[in-house]
Write a protein that binds this DNA or RNA. Structure first.
Lengths: 157, 157
DNA sequence: ACATTATTGTTGTATCTGCAACTATCACCA
DNA sequence: TGGTGATAGTTGCAGATACAACAATAATGT
């Protein structure tokens, strides 16, 4: 491949980083203001609600929300204390734990989702022409596919 | 407005988030492995090296690297201790401090930059067709422009 | 059956970040 | 000139995250 410094492509990278940072900031602030939910909490609720049976193994949930095992353990502790989720034993494998949504968690998500999705639309997707959407998804998918899965998962070396 | 869930555009958002997380992970890991530099340190070095006179006010630097004032204070402390940057008095306004690159910092950046830029190219820009690059930059710029500047800067309410 | 190895989730600890409060300095205006 | 408020940077503190070590359980091979 041609490997010139190529400032055009470098510019994309900068723009990508800045857009991401700004987007996360706004969406987080909006979600926090409107429903007192950090984005990470929202993400957990979404992943659980989309899972079959509204529950997931802790480790799978960790991968879904892009967090390390220990990171999720602590996050889940906080959310459990808030009554939005709960741990259940997983009979099939007694090492495992099932992370499940409580009714309160479902309700909280149901109330917060519309505003958040509207935010994503307003701040992000709105700027996307119909045709561009697929191009972009495909691009991100290519990037993602060529990358190793999550590094920095914890556990011993 | 049309407020259908619009899964196509939602998919872009998800793909965007996942690609970002994965990219940061790999690039950080590579930079760390090859040059013992966290991405934040690299960013500071780049911003300073691109600034006129190789120095910037602390607050401007904070904005450039997308960090809060206090966040930068601490980050800069660490980098100063490592000898890569230094604080200089700013005569024109004695409240201010100039963040400057040391020769060691310049040297470190000069050695690390090629590998990092190659990484950005290999993991990100390579998947981008020539024509797509401009489309994408424009899109991110639109997103960025429509957004408020950094929220969550610190300081009293 | 048993020993060895892998996997699951949690915990100890360190790092990094932001918010709010603080000090020092500056800007402005009466 | 003095006073009031704004601004620059630092610091105390709390929150969130990752890595490494750990206990409990499962899987595998002999």
């Amino acid at each position: 491949m041609d490997e010139q410094p190529d400032p055009r492509r470098l510019a994309v990278w900068r723009a990508f980083l800045e857009a991401h940072a700004a987007l996360i900031d706004v969406l987080e602030a909006e979600l926090q203001a409107a429903h007192a939910l950090p984005l990470t909490w929202y993400d957990v609720l979404v992943q659980l609600s989309e899972a079959p049976g509204h529950c997931l193994r802790m480790q799978d949930l960790a991968r879904s929300v892009l967090l390390s095992k220990s990171g999720l353990t602590r996050l889940f502790d906080r959310m459990e204390q808030a009554g939005l989720v709960e741990r259940r034993p997983f009979p099939a494998d007694r090492r495992g734990t099932l992370a499940a949504l409580t009714p309160a968690g479902e309700e909280r998500l149901r109330r917060a989702a519309p505003a958040h999705l509207a935010g994503v639309l307003r701040h992000f997707a709105r700027h996307l022409a119909e045709a561009e959407a697929d191009t972009l998804t495909a691009f991100f998918a290519r990037v993602r596919a060529a990358l190793p899965g999550r590094l920095r998962i914890d556990g011993p070396v």
